[in-house]
Amino acid sequence: MPIVSVDELSRTYRVADRQPGLRGSVQHLLRRRHRDVVAVQGVSFAVEPGEIVGFLGPNGAGKTTTLKMLTGLIHPSSGSVQVAGWVPARRQPRFLEQITLVMGNKQQLIWDLPPLDSFRVNAAVYGIDDSEAKRRIHELADMLELGDELTRPVRKLSLGQRMKAELLAALLHRPAVLFLDEPTLGLDVNAQARVRDFLADYNRRYGATVLLTSHYMGDITALCPRVLLIHQGRLFYDGSLEELTTSLAPQREVRLELRHLANAEEFQGYGELESLQGHQVRLLIPREQLTQQVGELLSRFDVLDLEVSDPPVEELIGRLFRQGSVA
């Protein structure tokens, strides 16, 4: 039984169509012209409890709009959404107690006060009694490696510390479904890794379902066994990251440096010979035959050096978005 199910979800925005400059502004004031922009179109998917799913897509692809429809902040133009058995757009308290939204570019902590004060406000709002709240704060602070940061005003915290405190504030009510919109935005590499580790740990410990968007491929590769690729409002891939890279780049490149010169014929049966220059050989070998063939190559030739490479995922996906389809 999926915890998130989305069926033919679409969202259209009506935006003002306005020419630049004063002239444009006056014209707009006198006669407003609008244009409909499709942000999300016919998206369907389902997520099982405990899954971690990443939304991938360029800016403006519709990731955030989808996330906001899942949390009930934006009403769908058409289609249906169910999260934890509820229709998000109704925003019933019982539903809201089961979800959370963390946005990397917005904060809910009180700026002038220590994070603990914000936690206490959230505890009251979510109806968590004080001793239980204290226990949970302690537990999450441990997992997040937060200590005396909790008693320092938020404005004095670093971006990384603040993000961790934001996460704590957002998770105090033990939501079953986490929606994370760019949770590592602007963080340095170390802080990003901490946040990732925490999310993986949290998912394991509480079995929470996690849906996240990120620009950083690292977040997705580290956390999400499954990705949803969204481009121009449409979902055009739903599956594992591995399968995606396999289907995008079914072969891997193997470079060999040989002690002795060899003929091109000698490489027949070892994938596709890309180039042979002196001692340098470049072969394209299908993934599924890689280990076996590399083993054979090593035993047959006197190999000085061997390198197996894969095009970076970013590059593959970038190419994919430019093509506009997986095929």
Binding site: R91, P93, L96
Partner: peptide
């Protein structure tokens, strides 16, 4: 303007009260 109304709307408490 800042979009922080989102946080208010996601709290299980009447948003007008908040």
């Amino acid at each position: 303007q800042n979009g922080t109304l989102d946080f208010v709307l996601l709290k299980p408490i009447d948003s007008q009260f908040w």
